[in-house]
């Protein structure tokens, strides 16, 4: 398959079941909601070393938030429910509770309930106040700037993590420009996050390493500087490869995000140095969710 001069490989991205949750952070203005959200989703690019994958889903208008203030929706993904709950609580406590003027609300009503502010209330040292409003429990925790308002729980649902595609380009600036265009479009799709810095990862990995202590190492088949010394997957003109990883609530959400992302890359086309779109997989043996690039773009 070729779109606008860009070859779409006959391959697939392989993804895994994960657990996910969503939280809504509001603040006095969008600036401070975003600062809090960025802190909460920081150091959360990959479950390999961060414990979770997290990202900003979108900015929320004041009319969309529970307390009528500007807000940001964040999503956190982890391999299991226990790990997710721990990450959520730690991040909420250290990054949102501490952030000036912030308030924290559940972003998913259904699913299994996990603690959002339920345990943060103990920071109130006995001065915390509970309020049950429209069937939802909130905690008002006295803090130095006033009161930190948080919903007690949020929903945890089954989700999919690890959807991806690779952008193969003739130069590094061209690969990055294509990925930026893709991310701009993908951020418009609800229920997905792209957890890596700016949504783009330049150090895609393969399973295993020559070093016993490492479970993952650089994806040498896609490293352009190794073209002459490894079993490369790159043609001579490819000088840079970048990857976009997508976590989503459902397979369909990831499908949509991949479609608009790949389309945005292809719109730049071969004339802007984009040569191929590929994807990372492990032969289909590890993850039950397969995203076939040509099917998605058909």
């Amino acid at each position: 398959m070729i779109i606008n001069g860009v070859t779409i490989d006959q391959t697939f991205a392989e993804a895994f079941p994960m657990k996910a949750t969503r939280a809504i952070i509001t603040a006095q203005n969008e600036k401070w909601a975003m600062i809090s959200a960025q802190a909460m989703t920081g150091f959360a690019t990959s479950v390999i070393a961060c414990g979770c994958e997290a990202g900003i889903e979108r900015v929320l208008d004041a009319s969309e938030t529970p307390d009528g203030r500007p807000g940001v929706s964040v999503m956190i993904f982890a391999m299991g429910g226990k790990g997710l709950a721990k990450q959520l609580e730690t991040r909420a406590g250290q990054c949102v509770l501490t952030s000036p003027t912030s308030a924290l609300f559940a972003g998913i009503d259904g699913g299994t309930r996990i603690a959002l502010g339920k345990n943060l209330r103990y920071f109130g040292d006995g001065f915390q106040v509970s309020k049950l409003i429209s069937g939802k429990r909130y905690w008002r925790i006295p803090v130095m700037d006033g009161e930190f308002l948080t919903e007690a729980t949020t929903g945890q649902v089954d989700a999919v993590g690890g959807g991806n595609f690779l952008v193969l380009a003739e130069s590094q600036p061209q690969a990055l420009a294509a990925c930026e265009a893709a991310i701009d479009e993908m951020r418009k799709i609800p229920n997905v996050i792209m957890p890596f810095p700016g949504g783009v990862v330049r150090s895609g990995s393969k399973v295993g390493s020559k070093y016993k202590s490492l479970g993952a190492s650089t994806n040498d088949a896609f490293c352009p500087t190794l073209k002459g010394m490894t079993k490369t997957d790159l043609s001579p003109e490819i000088e840079s490869v970048m990857e976009i990883v997508i976590d989503g609530l459902t397979k369909e959400d990831i499908d949509k995000a991949m479609r608009v992302g790949i389309q945005a890359v292809c719109d730049l086309g071969a004339e802007n140095g984009i040569k191929r779109i590929s994807a990372g997989n492990y032969g289909g043996k590890l993850g039950p969710f397969h995203f076939h690039l040509q099917e998605i773009m058909a």
Partner: peptide, 13 residues
């Protein structure tokens, strides 16, 4: 005197 964040939620209910 304070501005309390839970009051808008309460009134909304």
């Amino acid at each position: 005197a304070h501005t309390l964040a839970f009051l808008p939620l309460l009134f909304k209910s």
